[in-house]
Amino acid sequence: MRVVKILERLLATIPIMFGVAIIVFFFMRLTPGDPVDIMMGQGGAVSTGEIERLREEFNLDKPLLVQLWLFLKDALRGDLGYSYILKRPVTTLIAERLPATIELALGALLVSLLFSIPVGILSAVRQNSLLDRLTMASSFLGISMPGFWLGIILILLFSVRWGWLPVQGRISADLKLQQVTGFFVLDSLLTGNRQALISSLRHLVLPSITLGAPVAAVVARVLRSSMLETLRSDYVMLARSKGAHEWNVVLKHALRNALIPTVTVVGLQVGILLGGNMIIEAVFGWPGLGRMVVDAIFNRDFPLIQGSVMVYAFTFVIANLAVDVMYTYLNPKVSL
C-alpha cells in the first residue's frame, strides 16, 4: 500500500519538473543578455552571418513557443539538449556533476545530524545548564555565519596552517579511481580501493562541516525546543510512573515524539543542502552541480540551466517525499 502511494508520488514529480522547467524557460528568456552575444564577446569581430548561423543552430531564431515545443518534445524523450558553451549533452554534464553534489550534501547531512541530535537532546535534558547555553549560543553563530567565511577559516586552519586536510577537490590528483556510480566514497568501496576511500573521505570533511554547520544549528534548536515540550508531557510522566529509567524516558518516549517536527525541518534543509551550495562548492573547488549552474546562468546557457533546474526540482520533491514517508513511520496519525 505504502509502495503504491510512493510510486504515485514519484510519478507526480514529472509534471512538477516540467512546470518548473517551463517557468525557468520563460524567465531566462526574459532576462537581458543574449547567449550568442555573450559567446561572441563584445568586440564585434564576428560577422553577422556567423551570429545568424549560431542562432539558427540553437533554434534561437524561432518564435518562443516553437522553442518551448522543441525543448519539451526532446525532454520527454530524455534529451535535454546541448550546452551552448560546453558543446556537450546536458544530461551527460549533469550526470558527471550531480553525484559530487549529492555526495557533499549527504556528507553535510551526516555531519550535521551527528552533531545536532545529541546536542539537541542533551541541551533539552539539561536545560539552562552551561552546556545548553554554550551550544545554543554557538548554534546561533552557526546560523549567522556566512558559509564562505567559515569555509575559508577552516581551510586556513586545517589545511594551510596545520596541513591536516586537503584544500580542495574531491580526491588527490595522483590517485586513480575507477568510476562506477560517480560517488567517490561508494566507488572506492566498490572497487576496494582503500587509498581512494581515505582520500575522498578526507576531502569531504571540511566542505561537509562548512555546508552542514547552519543545518546542524537549525536542527539542534528545533530538536531542543520540541524535546523540551515532549519532556513536559503527560506521557513522559506516565513512562516515569511505570519505573522506566530516565534515559529510556528521554530516548524513547520523548525523542520519538520530538522527532516528528524535527524531520520536517531536516527535509527542508536537505533541499538547501542540494540546491544552495554554489558558494561552498566554489570555496572548496568541489566539482558539483552548483558551480556549473552559476556559470551557465552567467553565460545564458539555456539548455544547461533548464536541465539543471529540472534536476533541482526533482531532488527537492524527492527530499520532500522522503520526509513524508518518514513521517508516516514516526507519526501513526499520518498516512501517505
Binding site: D234, M237, L238, S241, K242, G243, R256, I260
Partner: peptide
C-alpha cells in the same frame, strides 16, 4: 525508587489522551 514505581505503586492519570504516548501502540 524506579523498582517501586509501576510495580508496587502505580498511578492512573487524569487525561488519558495526553497521557498515552501517541506514537506507540
Amino acid at each position: 525508587m524506579r523498582a517501586i514505581r509501576g510495580k508496587d505503586i502505580a498511578m492512573i492519570f487524569q487525561d488519558p489522551l495526553s497521557t498515552l504516548n501517541p506514537v506507540f501502540v
